Simulated scan of single mutants.
Amino acid sequence: MILGNLSGFSEFRLLGFSESSHLHSLLFVVLLFLYILTLMANTVTAFTINSDNTLHTPMYFFLTQLSCLDICYLSVIFPTIIETLMVGTVSISKTRCAMQMFFFLFFGVAECFLLAAMSLDRYFAICYPLHYTVTMSSRLCRSLVAGSYIFGAAVGLIHTLTTFSSPLCGSAIDHFFCEIQPLLDLLCGSTFPRELQVTVVAVFAILSPFLLIIYSYICIISTILHMASAERQQKAFSTCSSHLLVVALFYGTGGAVYLRPKSTCCASVHKFLSLSYSVLTPLLNPIIYSLRNKEVKEALKKILEELRRISFYPFAFIS
């Protein structure tokens, strides 16, 4: 009922990549390839971790949740992205647009807090190894994941309800999916109250987890520097630098959109930043966090060897 009485508009028009129509074919091929690669990488990661009992630890529990989040996060918007590249301007109902914005914020904010929980897990594992198994109990791990989803749902509801219950004076969204910043351009009157709301919520949902991650890694690096073994130091630094690279990309591009005044970011830059945190990060996460991990690679190798052995059995029976 709320969505049905918002204004005279029953649907929106997504302009997509209208300023680069000559690149639509290339973008279609590249983004479709990245999407398939992302689905495969995250699915393989989750399946490998769940199939190997030695990987049933807090760190890999969080990695499984991250893989599932990344699949959902990208899949919410990807059909719309592909549609805009195929046909240009796309019409989308107001209800579908509201649902897309809610779920994108839901999964995106949940990932922000999940990455913070993962840094907390590494903090206790490296800085307090003797107390790690007691501190990071299965109950605490489940609570951290549940809290991530609760915060994501809360932020999604706040932004979706306040945006779509405001009077709208336009229906053309200069973006490739329903994201809150381009929708602010359609609000009637002054958008300052809504911009302030977006900034305040972003400080809580983006900046707070990011600062927790930075603090955790400062403590981790400090602990690494006191390690006696140079080999262990190098390995730990390699892992930390990879994690921080992904974190910087995700939080940096997200913060550049949600923590800056809307008037200072043009539509083309906003689209580029949106592609960075919505398409690239879900692909990089399983590669950096999981597939470069020695234990995950060993578990994946065992699965592939088992599949190869099973596939040989029918031929052996026939012969």
Rank of each mutant, 00 (worst) to 15 (best):
Y149M: 13
G108C: 07
S148H: 12
T45I: 02
L120T: 00
T43E: 04
F104C: 13
A41S: 10
N53R: 07
P58N: 10
A146S: 15
N42I: 05
H131C: 03
E83G: 04
L69M: 03
D70S: 14
G88I: 11
L69Q: 04
T45Q: 14
K94F: 06
M40T: 08
S93V: 02
S91F: 14
F33T: 13
A117K: 12
G88H: 08
C72V: 12
A117C: 02
L69H: 00
F107V: 14
L115N: 07
S93G: 13
I126C: 12
V29P: 00
V76S: 12
Y149A: 09
H131K: 14
F113S: 04
M136A: 04
E83T: 11
N53G: 04
I81P: 01
L144T: 07
V155W: 14
S119W: 05
V76A: 15
M59W: 03
L144V: 08
S93M: 05
F104L: 14
A46F: 01
V145Y: 09
F33H: 07
S67R: 01
V30S: 00
I71R: 02
Q65M: 02
G152V: 02
S143V: 02
C112I: 04
M99R: 06
A125P: 00
L26T: 11
N50A: 08
H56M: 05
M59C: 08
I71Q: 01
T57F: 02
P129C: 11
S119V: 02
R96V: 12
V155R: 08
L120A: 01
L120N: 03
Y35N: 05
M86C: 08
L63C: 07
A153H: 03
L115T: 06
L37A: 14
S119A: 15
S93W: 01
C97N: 08
Q65R: 04
R122E: 08
T45E: 11
L37G: 03
L114W: 02
L27V: 00
F102G: 04
T84M: 14
C127I: 04
S138E: 10
L26W: 15
Y73V: 00
H56C: 04
A125D: 10
A110M: 05
T48D: 06
H56L: 07
L32P: 02
F33Q: 06
I77G: 11
N50S: 06
S138H: 11
T54W: 03
C141L: 04
C72D: 11
D52K: 06
Q65I: 03
Q65E: 02
I36L: 12
T48R: 09
F102L: 13
I71G: 02
I126A: 00
R139F: 10
V90K: 00
